[in-house]
Design a protein around this nucleic acid. Structure first.
Length: 494
RNA sequence: GCGAGCAUCGUCUAACGGUUAAGACAUCGGUUUGUGGUACCGAGAAUCAGGGUUCAAUUCCCUGUGCCCGCCCCA
C-alpha cells in the first residue's frame, strides 16, 4: 500500500470520527437503556421479571454493588494490611473458586442453619451438577487442603484467602449479597495458643486499620462429647419452657437448639438467660482449653467478654467461637468478623482428623468502619510529570516519549485526546504535577522537549536524549517533598 | 421472609395543581486558535414505570419497580 493510500484511509477515518457520531450514539444508548429498564420492571408481574434480550438494566442485581475508584484507597490499604499481617503470622495465600458443589457447603455449614436453608445461591450447571456460589470461604479452603494433601506439610498449615462470598439475603447497611471476606485458617494444631494467636491476629488487623474501639466476644461450645450432653440438657430445659419461646425458636428446638440462645426476641432472651451455659458443662479437656485461651488473652491485654450465648451461624464449630465487634460514637455495635475452632470438619469432609481454627473478616464492614473513624487510606504514587503535545507530528512522537519516560521509572500523566495546549495544561494543573513536558510542531522537528516548571512557570528546552536525565534531576531537587511523602506511605502500611 | 421511609440532570438541591422543570457542584468547549490554578461566556444533562383524579400532574391517589433503613440472620 502506498503512503498516499494510507493517508487517504486515515483521512476518511478521521473524518468519520469527527462527526461525533460515537458520542451521540453512546448517549442515546444510555437513555434507551435507562428508560427501558423501567417499563420492563413495571410490566413485571410477580417476582419473575421477563428478560427481553435487548434490554440492559443499568444497575447491578440486588445486593451487588460497584466498588468505585473513590473507595479503592481504602480497599488498597485493607489489602495491604491483611497481606502484611498474613506474612507476619506465617499465613500463605490460597484462592479457591467462587463456585463449588453445593453439597460441600451443605455438609460443612450444616442444615438447619440460615445460610444453608435460605441464603445459598444454588443453581444447576448445564451438565446437571448442583453448584453454589460460596457463602463463606472456609469450606472451599478445607476442600483444597484435603484434595491437595496439605496434611503432609509441616503443621500448623496456615492459609489465608481474600475474595467475594455470596448470600441471598435482604440488603441493608453493611450487608450485601456479594461481599468480601478475608479468611485465616490454621490446620493441624490443637494447642489453645493457636486460638489466642488468631484472636491476636484479628485484633492486629483491625487496629492496624485505625479501628480502635473493638471488643471480642468469646465462648466455648465444647467438643462433640460434652456438647452432646450439654445440648440434651439444653433441649430438656427449653422443652420445659417451650410455650414461652417465639415461633422460630420452637422450630429451632428440633433443628438447631443452640441458636435459641442467640435469639433476639425479648421472651426468648428471658428464657435463655436462665438456660444452662455451655461453659459450665465443658468436659475437663475443653474446660482447660478454654481457660488457657482466656489466660493468654489476659496476658495480651486483649479486650474481650465471655458471651455464654454466642453460638454462631455455622454448625461446624467446636470449642472456641469468637466474634469481633466495634463500637461507634453512638454506642452502636458493628460485627466485623468472627470465627472459631472446627476440629472435626476436616475429617467430616473426608480428610484425616485435623484440629483447625479460623476466622473471617467482613471487608465491606471494615471499609465502612475505616471511613467512620477517618482511618488512613492508601493512595499509590502520583505522577509528577505531565506530557502535553501540540500538532500532528508531536502527537505521533508523544507515545514513544511517554513510554520512554515510564520505562525509566518516571510516572507520567497525559491527556493526549485533547487538542489545545491550554486544556492540557489545565488538566496538568488538576493532576498536580511538578513539571509539564511540552512537544509542539517545532520541538518535534528539532527532537527537543520543553520542560516547564509548574510552580515557577519557567521553562527550558532540552534534547530528547537528555530528557530523561533532566527530568530526573529536577524531580530529585524537589526531593524534600517527595521523600517525606514516601515515608508517609510506609507508615500508612503499618 | 416481615415492617417502615424515600424516588427530579452524573451529584446535591428547587419548583401554591398551570415554569421553556430552576440553581449549585462536576463534565466538556470557548474568551483571536503555542502556555495552567482565578474570572467571564456557552453546551450537554433529569421528573422511575403504568394507570387514575383534573381543563391541567414533578406535585394528589392506586399499582408495580427500585433504593434505603430496621427485624430475622450474618460478615
Amino acid at each position: 500500500m502506498s503512503q498516499k493510500k494510507v493517508k487517504l484511509l486515515k483521512k476518511q477515518i478521521l473524518k468519520k470520527m469527527d462527526k461525533k457520531t460515537t458520542k451521540v450514539k453512546a448517549a442515546k444508548a444510555v437513555i434507551v437503556a435507562k428508560k427501558s429498564l423501567k417499563p420492563v420492571a413495571g410490566k413485571a408481574k410477580g417476582k419473575i421479571r421477563p428478560q427481553v434480550e435487548e434490554e440492559i438494566l443499568m444497575q447491578p442485581p440486588r445486593g451487588m454493588r460497584d466498588l468505585l475508584p473513590g473507595d479503592q484507597p481504602y480497599w488498597d490499604q485493607l489489602r495491604r494490611v491483611v497481606s502484611r499481617m498474613a506474612l507476619e503470622y506465617g499465613f500463605q495465600r490460597i484462592d479457591t473458586p467462587a463456585v463449588e458443589y453445593a453439597n460441600l457447603f451443605i455438609r460443612s455449614i450444616g442444615g438447619g442453619t440460615d445460610i444453608v436453608d435460605k441464603e445459598m445461591y444454588i443453581f444447576n450447571s448445564k451438565g446437571g451438577d448442583k453448584l453454589s456460589l460460596r457463602p463463606e470461604l472456609t469450606a472451599g479452603i478445607v476442600r483444597a487442603y484435603i484434595q491437595h494433601g496439605m496434611n503432609v506439610l509441616s503443621k500448623p498449615v496456615k492459609l489465608f484467602s481474600i475474595g467475594p462470598v455470596y448470600r441471598y439475603d435482604r440488603p441493608q447497611e453493611g450487608r450485601y449479597r456479594e461481599h468480601f471476606q478475608a479468611n485465616f485458617d490454621a490446620f493441624g494444631e490443637q494447642d489453645p495458643i493457636l486460638d489466642a494467636q488468631l484472636i491476636q491476629l484479628a485484633h492486629r488487623v483491625v487496629t492496624s486499620l485505625g479501628i480502635k474501639n473493638v471488643q471480642f466476644q468469646i465462648n466455648s461450645l465444647g467438643c462433640p462429647k460434652c456438647r452432646k450432653e450439654y445440648q440434651e440438657l439444653l433441649v430438656a430445659y427449653f422443652e420445659s419452657k417451650k410455650q414461652k419461646l417465639c415461633l422460630n425458636c420452637k422450630r429451632r428446638l428440633e433443628t438447631n437448639p443452640l441458636r435459641i440462645l442467640d435469639c433476639k426476641e425479648d421472651k426468648c432472651i428471658q428464657v435463655a438467660e436462665l438456660a444452662p451455659q455451655s461453659v459450665d458443662r465443658l468436659c475437663p479437656d475443653c474446660r482447660v482449653h478454654f481457660k488457657n485461651i482466656l489466660e493468654y488473652l489476659d496476658e495480651l491485654d486483649l479486650p474481650y467478654v465471655i458471651n455464654p450465648r454466642l453460638v454462631r451461624g455455622l454448625s461446624y464449630y467446636s470449642k472456641t467461637v469468637f466474634e469481633i465487634w466495634s463500637n461507634d460514637e453512638d454506642g452502636k455495635k458493628h460485627s466485623l468478623g468472627g470465627g472459631g475452632r472446627y476440629d472435626y470438619l476436616v475429617e467430616q469432609l473426608g480428610g484425616e482428623h485435623t484440629p483447625a481454627i479460623g476466622f473471617g473478616l467482613g471487608l465491606d464492614r471494615l471499609v465502612a468502619e475505616m471511613k467512620r473513624v477517618h482511618a488512613k487510606s492508601y493512595t499509590g504514587p502520583k505522577p509528577k510529570v505531565f506530557l502535553a503535545q501540540l500538532g500532528d507530528l508531536a502527537k505521533k512522537k508523544s507515545l514513544r516519549i511517554f513510554a520512554e519516560l515510564q520505562k525509566n521509572g518516571i510516572l507520567v500523566a497525559e491527556s493526549f485526546g485533547r487538542g489545545s495546549l491550554k486544556s492540557q495544561l489545565r488538566v496538568a494543573d488538576r493532576v498536580g504535577v511538578e513539571i509539564t513536558l511540552i512537544i509542539g510542531q517545532k520541538e518535534a522537528l528539532d527532537e527537543t522537549v520543553i520542560i516547564k516548571d509548574m510552580t515557577s512557570g519557567t521553562q527550558e528546552t532540552v534534547t530528547n536524549e537528555k530528557l530523561v536525565n533532566a527530568v530526573k534531576k529536577i524531580l530529585k531537587n524537589n526531593v524534600v517533598i517527595s521523600h517525606s511523602d514516601e515515608l508517609k506511605i510506609k507508615e500508612d502500611g503499618e
